[in-house]
């Protein structure tokens, strides 16, 4: 969890904001927002820093910037199955209709869509995710937001890979392709990059062993720790 709590890419200034009292200072919102856009351009991710933006919005509704919120949620989607998306939603207080925005607020329209995408990822319904994501309805989200988020589709694929490699030792190429929304040479290249082996003759992909896809029936024996025995031993020593 260390990398999630303190990503190595986080700068000292941001660390100061995330961990200090300065996180409440509304005039720092710009620094954090710039950092978010930096994450979007450079395929970095810092959940706690983004939550700090939402916290400032929570306390200072006048700072609210819907585009920033949408981008934070898009970034949080790619963290599945960690609860980041929910943590962000938790901070989105119900806000009165905001008259100060120049344009209509895009968030109320996008929120159900993002919720839906999150739900699909959380339920490992990856083919359905791609279908919805590529649908005409989501054109607005794709053209205005995810297109700006460098490597968005690949980071969704990483969500898929996290789920697949814990569950499978071998998986059919068609199945994996449908999860990754890749096929043919693209799929082969992707699998190769992962270091997984592709058996072309049977069209099956082998997932290398990892702690989660190795199963073993074990009997867990109890282990007695010394502190449990302190009283007994000290009595014996006295006697």
């Amino acid at each position: 969890m260390q990398a999630w709590i303190t990503p190595p890419t986080r700068t000292e200034i941001i660390e100061g904001l995330v961990s200090g009292v300065d996180r409440y200072n509304p005039s720092n919102v710009g620094i954090l927002e710039d950092y978010l856009y930096h994450q979007i351009r450079s395929e970095e991710y810092d959940c706690l820093a983004n939550l700090a933006i939402l916290k400032l919005y929570q306390f200072n509704p006048e700072l609210y910037n819907p585009d920033v919120v949408v981008n934070i949620l898009i970034k949080a989607l790619t963290a599945s199955p960690l609860p980041d998306f929910n943590l962000c939603i938790s901070l989105l207080d119900e806000r009165p209709i905001n008259a100060t925005l120049d344009e209509p607020d895009p968030l109320p329209g996008l929120l159900p869509i993002l919720n839906g995408l999150h739900d699909l990822l959380n339920r490992c319904r990856f083919p359905a995710f791609w279908e919805v994501y590529r649908s005409e309805q989501l054109e607005n989200l794709r053209d205005n937001y995810t297109v700006e988020c460098v490597g968005f589709e690949d980071s969704i694929r990483e969500v898929v890979i996290r789920a697949v490699k814990t569950t499978f030792t071998r998986i059919g190429a068609d199945r994996l392709g449908s999860y990754l929304d890749l096929s043919g040479p693209q799929l082969e290249a992707y699998v190769k990059k992962l270091g997984w082996t592709f058996d072309a003759s049977r069209s099956v992909i082998s997932v290398p062993p990892n702690p989660d896809n190795q199963i073993e029936a074990t009997v867990v024996q109890e282990s007695i720790k010394l502190p449990q025995l302190t009283k007994v031993i000290s009595q014996a020593a006295k006697g």
């Binding site: 569950t167 030792t169 059919g172 199963i215 074990t218 109890e222």
Partner: peptide, 22 residues
């Protein structure tokens, strides 16, 4: 615990031995 090998599920269960110490 379980794992899927293509379309075959393999299942293993860990059991906890009886606890006497407590």
């Amino acid at each position: 615990n379980f794992v899927i090998d293509e379309s075959m599920l393999h299942i293993a269960e860990s059991t906890i031995g009886r606890r006497y110490a407590g």
